[in-house]
Amino acid sequence: MSLRLKQLKLRAGAPSGIDHEFADGELTVVLGRHHSGKSALCRLIAGLDAAPAGSLFIDGIDISGLNARLRPVAMVFQAFVNYPNWTVEQNLASPLRARHRRRGRDTAHHQGRGNGGDAQAVARRVRMVAESLQIDLLLDRYPHELSGGQQQRVAIGRALAQDAAVLVLDEPLVNLDYKLREELEGQLRTLTRQTRQTVIYTSSDPLAAFALGDRVLLLKAGEYVQSGRPVDVYSRPVSLVAADLMSDPGVNLLFGPDHWLAVRPEHLSFKPPSADATAFPATIVERETNGSETFVHCRCQDENWVVRSIGVTDAVAGAAATLYADPANVMRFER
């Protein structure tokens, strides 16, 4: 199901609201730095907070006034949230059992009858989710007996098991180490493609947008910046903010009288890529390498610049160098 934001303000007093549609079955990475309103957006969608202004629609139905527990939205938090005195199996089943209880309450006369079938359905669903997240061997364990990655898998599993129309993941992998993050990212992509849920995934890392996102939505200080396919947003940023958010490390800047020039670190090189390449005289400050790529920190017209190049580059600190970029890759933004 699609989720539409209509003039939604992430915080009271924001100058403008956000209009955006999260298309059915797509994974959108919401990208922004700290305090950009990513978490606020998640909380508004889940219904944990009331929107200061604007409304939310799921398949055209206004859910703005709907209580959090009645919304077809599941949420995963940055902290590993599980119930400590329940096993993994009980944790995974808990939202389903809560739903059955609720349904039982609402239609009390149906209760005694459907429970056996329900219990079997819940068990099947739990097993399926556990298998897809590779925690099916841990079903009898308690959360404190699991590693961080496994705990977050259980938390993600609790959200997946609900089979909600919209799945919100608020920086779910930040607390995990790099290797685990990559692995879980891959699994999440496969899983959400299978379930065809509408997924909203927040991050501050542009790599996540490329790795996971069908779409990307950029936020800055609670305001909408740009959205679209990650590659499109990367190659055609509407503003300096958009270019910077989709770049890690950030874009290299030059200040003109009425404009900015911005070049991404990966578009700079020490040799001219073509005959008409733009040249930037600079001084090398420092070099850091990890073998596969090298970041060379320079000073260019009193600005700090970073060049990212493939492999190990021999750059000497203090030496003068000329940096080149293809004119097509030099972005110009009016002030």
Partner: peptide, 14 residues
């Protein structure tokens, strides 16, 4: 106790 634990419980209708 992290606030997220309470919010998750709220979504679970506890």
């Amino acid at each position: 106790i992290p606030g997220a634990c309470y919010q998750a419980a709220m979504l679970d209708d506890a």
